[in-house]
Simulated assay, not measured.
Amino acid sequence: MAAITMYELPGCPYCAKVRSKLDDLDLEYDVIEVPRSHDERTEVEKVSGQTGVPVITDEENGVEGMSESDDIVEYLEETYGDGAA
Score class of each variant (00 low, 15 high):
Met1Tyr: 01
Ala2Asp: 04
Ile4Arg: 04
Ile4Lys: 05
Ile4Pro: 03
Ile4Glu: 03
Thr5Met: 10
Thr5Gln: 11
Thr5Glu: 14
Thr5Tyr: 02
Met6Val: 10
Met6Ser: 06
Tyr7Asn: 07
Tyr7Trp: 14
Tyr7Ala: 06
Glu8Val: 02
Glu8Pro: 00
Glu8Ser: 13
Leu9Tyr: 12
Pro10Gly: 04
Gly11Glu: 10
Cys12His: 05
Cys12Asn: 13
Pro13Lys: 10
Pro13His: 12
Tyr14Met: 13
Tyr14His: 15
Cys15Thr: 07
Ala16Lys: 14
Ala16Gly: 07
Ala16Asn: 11
Lys17Pro: 06
Lys17Thr: 09
Lys17Gln: 14
Lys17Met: 15
Lys17Ile: 03
Lys17Tyr: 11
Val18Asn: 07
Val18Cys: 09
Ser20Arg: 13
Ser20Leu: 07
Ser20His: 11
Lys21Glu: 15
Leu22Gly: 04
Leu22Tyr: 04
Leu22Met: 06
Leu22Thr: 07
Asp23Ile: 09
Asp23Val: 12
Asp24Pro: 03
Asp24Asn: 12
Asp24Thr: 11
Asp24Trp: 02
Leu25Phe: 12
Leu25Trp: 11
Asp26Trp: 07
Asp26Arg: 13
Leu27Trp: 11
Leu27Phe: 13
Leu27Asn: 10
Leu27Gly: 13
Asp30Asn: 15
Ile32Asn: 09
Ile32Glu: 14
Glu33Tyr: 11
Glu33Trp: 08
Glu33Thr: 15
Val34Glu: 15
Val34Phe: 05
Arg36Leu: 15
His38Lys: 14
Asp39His: 12
Asp39Ile: 11
Asp39Lys: 15
Asp39Met: 13
Asp39Thr: 13
Asp39Cys: 05
Glu40Pro: 08
Glu40Arg: 14
Glu40Thr: 05
Glu40Ser: 14
Arg41Ser: 08
Thr42Phe: 07
Thr42Asn: 13
Val44Leu: 10
Glu45Ile: 04
Glu45Arg: 14
Lys46Glu: 14
Lys46Ile: 00
Val47Gln: 08
Ser48Glu: 04
Gly49Ile: 10
Gln50Val: 06
Gln50Ile: 03
Gln50Trp: 06
Thr51Cys: 04
Thr51Asn: 10
Gly52Glu: 07
Val53Ala: 09
Pro54Ser: 06
Pro54Glu: 04
Asp58Cys: 02
Asp58Leu: 02
Glu60Asn: 11
Asn61Cys: 00
Asn61Val: 03
Gly62Gln: 00
Gly62Met: 01
Glu64Arg: 06
Glu64Ala: 02
Gly65Leu: 01
Gly65Met: 03
Met66Val: 00
Ser67Lys: 00
Ser67Ile: 01
Glu68Asn: 02
Ser69Phe: 01
Ser69Tyr: 01
Asp70Cys: 01
Asp70Ile: 02
Asp70Trp: 00
Val73Tyr: 03
Val73Asn: 02
Val73Ile: 09
Val73Phe: 03
Glu74Thr: 10
Glu74Arg: 11
Glu77Val: 06
Glu77Thr: 09
Glu78Thr: 05
Glu78Lys: 10
Glu78Trp: 00
Thr79Ser: 08
Thr79Met: 09
Thr79Lys: 12
Thr79His: 01
Thr79Tyr: 00
Tyr80Trp: 02
Tyr80Leu: 02
Tyr80Arg: 01
Tyr80Cys: 02
Gly81Asn: 08
Gly81His: 03
Asp82Pro: 05
Gly83Gln: 06
Gly83Val: 08
Gly83Glu: 12
Gly83Ala: 12
Ala84Thr: 04
Ala84Gly: 05
Ala85Cys: 04
Ala85Met: 07
